[in-house]
């Protein structure tokens, strides 16, 4: 398998606080990697470092063998190839759903409006939102907004998609509609790196589970193995917090 994204010896500090320590990771084309871990373990920071929203202190991120570190002149070029969907609704509120989807393709990739609109409509249709193309984000529910955010990221045809707790701010019923879209992407063999607290979803979608604790990857395993017999005591404790007994 060919590796798309590679992280070598990446470390990140906020002042004196070590957030990520010596992260090494290689993700193959079409692989779905789910990152789990308790709050503050560095999951989100890891994603943000990958597309250069955060500076890294040591090591490097490589996309197709090219570095993505901030300061690199090709940073915007690399970001085109790394799609990201955030936890909070990040759609552009002054633009309609359709305009949200076609803005970057037209500005960044200089695609024609006709071409961009055609693809946007195809993708919006796929997530069941073609009819809402002329609505503004404020007129959509949280789940609908996240589906549009996914479409907007897909419009750039990224090589890797990063999902940063995209369902954390949603009502339970809306979580489903968003996760279904991501499952659909997995079937299409999209390369994805997903941070989530939805354990059953992680189990269903992951080819690989990374367990992060205190800024380090302490488990990198097959989902079946991770959920049935985690190797570390820390992971066992983490997984127990999702179980309830009376």
């Amino acid at each position: 398998m060919e590796s798309v994204l590679k992280i070598e010896h990446m470390s990140k500090k906020f002042d004196d606080l070590i957030v990520l320590e010596d992260i090494n990771l290689s993700i193959d084309k079409g692989e779905v990697v789910v990152i789990v871990g308790s709050s503050g373990c560095g999951k989100s920071t890891l994603l943000r470092c990958i597309n250069g929203l955060e500076d890294i202190d040591e090591g490097q991120v490589l996309l197709d063998g090219e570095t993505v570190n901030p300061g690199n002149r090709n940073l915007t070029k690399s970001r085109e190839k790394i799609g990201m969907v955030f936890q909070s609704y990040d759609l552009f509120p002054h633009k309609t759903i359709l305009e949200n989807a076609i803005l970057a393709p037209m500005k960044v990739q200089k695609r024609s409006r006709k071409d961009a609109v055609e693809e946007a409509m195809r993708l919006l249709d796929r997530v069941g939102l073609a009819e809402r193309k002329d609505s503004y984000p404020r007129q959509l529910s949280g789940g609908q907004k996240q589906r549009v955010a996914i479409v907007r990221a897909l419009m750039m045809d990224p090589e890797v998609l990063l999902f940063d707790e995209v369902t954390a701010a949603l009502d339970p019923e809306m979580v489903r509609e968003v996760l279904d879209v991501i499952l659909d992407l997995a079937k299409q063999k999209r390369t994805m790196l997903i941070v989530t607290h939805e354990m059953s979803f992680a189990k269903a979608i992951a080819d690989r589970i990374l367990f992060l604790d205190d800024g380090r990857i302490i488990e990198d395993s097959d989902p079946k193995e991770f959920f049935t017999s985690p190797a570390t005591e820390r992971a066992k404790r983490f997984l127990r917090t999702f179980e309830y007994e009376k």
């Binding site: 915007t76 085109e80 799609g83 955030f86 500005k107 960044v108």
Partner: peptide, 23 residues
């Protein structure tokens, strides 16, 4: 988050300011 989402779409600082922030 507006800045970050525009940047993560590969927009340049100029495009970000003109098309996202300013309006």
């Amino acid at each position: 988050i507006q800045t970050e989402s525009a940047l993560s779409l590969g927009m340049t600082n100029g495009q970000l300011f003109r098309d996202v922030i300013l309006p």
